[in-house]
Design a protein around this nucleic acid. Structure first.
Length: 440
DNA sequence: AAGGCATAGCGTCACGTCAC
DNA sequence: GTGACGTGACGCTATGCCTT
């Protein structure tokens, strides 16, 4: 996809927070790039992020000026980040090159000390940065192989303009106010997952960069740019296998939800308003307390069908009740028998088996901790294993439930962000129209 | 109706993490 | 070090949908 001539507009909005770009994660890289450590002797170096979302490789640096960046070819269209050490500037800033592949063309964004200083779209881009007295890159020339030239005048912390002349894929106007939204027009595309290496050592705050691409058909896509350190954090989080309990606890705390805690340490109780039953937590498990009247051994039609095992384990040394687990051909489950129920009473406890299951295997009842109703007393090892399996079974259920809830949360968040993106696009539209009117 | 396929849910195992 | 817990991975089963 070739960018149409004179139809490229880049607008940055809001304060770009990238003030120091500190690359890392490059195997073998000494990772010393910073504003204070880079020296003119430093070789300009692209630092490759092996784990970043990127396509293609090819970056070659030239000692003169900026760097030489080959475009990355790929129909997938993806942002490709490289951090630069640019000691050649004499003041040791670290720059970023973000390449957004546009099929055969690339978008090159150079970020210096809080400002994006150069934007270009060429198949191959070569840039020269000229430092100015007082610090900062004030003039940037992007010199592609083709006769396209982009010149920019960058003033630190001020709106800057880059202009280009000539060539079929000329960038005509690049505006760089304090901002972080890049608007592309003229059929350009920027893929998801673009990454910018950044570390704001002063504030630690990163504002998301979003790239708005406008297609030939008028469609617009706003693409968030993921900062490298955010990406790294995400990878770290993923590597640590986050606990959905923690996630959901966070969600619960933010959403004002609470957990019942007014029950003694070992057993927590809460009432389920949905079905009127009571749920207790025993050693981390959540079990439903069933009154004798509610428990019937046998299906609704009175036949014993489907239950293969009925296991009773006393998780609390017989002082607080017994966990009863039943296994059927179709569905397993468990419930909690309070301590007030005697062994004789237990005879009255019956399992309300799922209606779709059938009981033909007989019932095996085992118990520990004083209840003598069982027919088989398992050995210690098998008892422990049974308990472990029981707990793990419940834990797996809980984990899956939380995972589903978490995924729903993410989906909701996606919907919210999509709406926000739409709103931002509309805002950009209106601002752009306003700007054009004033320009006229 | 039968078979194939995709999907969801479950139980279990293995492993990492954490608290003690 | 050890046990408890959470979670990914794997295999199995049930269910629904589609095709033949």
């Amino acid at each position: 996809m070739a960018a149409k001539a004179n139809e490229n507009t880049y607008i940055l909005q809001e304060t770009q927070q990238i003030s120091t770009i500190n690359s890392n994660n490059n195997p073998g890289d000494d990772d010393t790039a910073s504003q204070s450590t880079a020296t003119p002797a430093d070789t300009k170096q692209l630092v490759y992020e092996p784990n970043c979302n990127r396509l293609g490789p090819t970056s070659n640096l030239h000692q003169t000026g900026f760097n030489y960046v080959n475009s990355i070819i790929g129909s997938g269209v993806i942002g490709i980040p490289y951090a630069l050490r640019t000691g050649g500037f004499g003041f040791g800033v670290v720059l970023i090159v973000l390449i957004a592949v546009i099929t055969d063309y690339s978008l090159c964004i150079l970020v210096k000390a809080g400002n994006i200083v150069g934007v270009n779209t060429y198949q191959t881009t070569q840039a020269i940065a000229v430092p100015q007295a007082g610090g900062g890159v004030s003039i940037v020339q992007l010199l592609p192989n083709q006769p396209n030239v982009v010149q920019s005048v960058i003033q630190p912390n001020q709106q800057s303009v880059i202009q280009a002349t000539g060539g079929a894929q000329t960038v005509q106007t690049v505006q760089l106010p304090k901002g972080n939204v890049i608007l592309l027009k003229g059929g350009q595309q920027v893929g998801q997952g673009s990454v910018i290496h950044s570390t704001d050592t002063d504030t630690g705050i990163h504002h998301g960069v979003q790239i708005l691409s406008k297609g030939d058909d008028g469609s617009e896509t706003l693409t968030p740019v993921i900062f490298e350190d955010e990406s790294r954090k995400r990878r770290e989080i993923l590597a640590r296998r986050p606990s959905y309990r923690k996630i959901l606890n966070d969600l619960s705390s933010t959403e004002g939800q609470s957990v019942v805690t007014a029950i003694p340490a070992e057993i927590k109780q809460e009432d389920d308003e949905r079905d009127g039953t009571t749920t207790i937590q025993v050693g981390g498990q959540y079990l439903k307390v069933l009154p004798a009247s509610a428990i019937q051994l046998g299906s609704q039609d009175g036949t014993l069908q489907g239950i293969q095992t009925l296991t009773m384990t006393n998780a609390n040394a017989g002082s607080q009740g017994t966990i009863v687990q039943y296994a059927t051909q179709g569905q397993d489950g468990q419930f909690y028998v309070p301590v007030t129920v005697s062994a004789a009473d237990l005879q009255a406890y019956q399992i309300r088996a799922p209606s779709q299951t059938s009981i033909t295997q007989g019932v095996v009842m085992t118990s520990t901790g004083g209840l003598q109703g069982g027919q088989v007393v398992p050995e210690e090892a098998s008892k422990k294993r049974e308990l472990r399996l029981l707990k793990n079974r419940e834990a797996a259920k809980e984990c899956r439930r939380k995972k589903k809830e978490y995924i729903k949360c993410l989906e909701n968040r996606v919907a919210v962000l999509e709406n926000q993106n739409k709103a931002l696009i509309e805002e950009l539209k209106s601002l752009k129209e306003l700007y054009c009117q004033k320009a006229d």
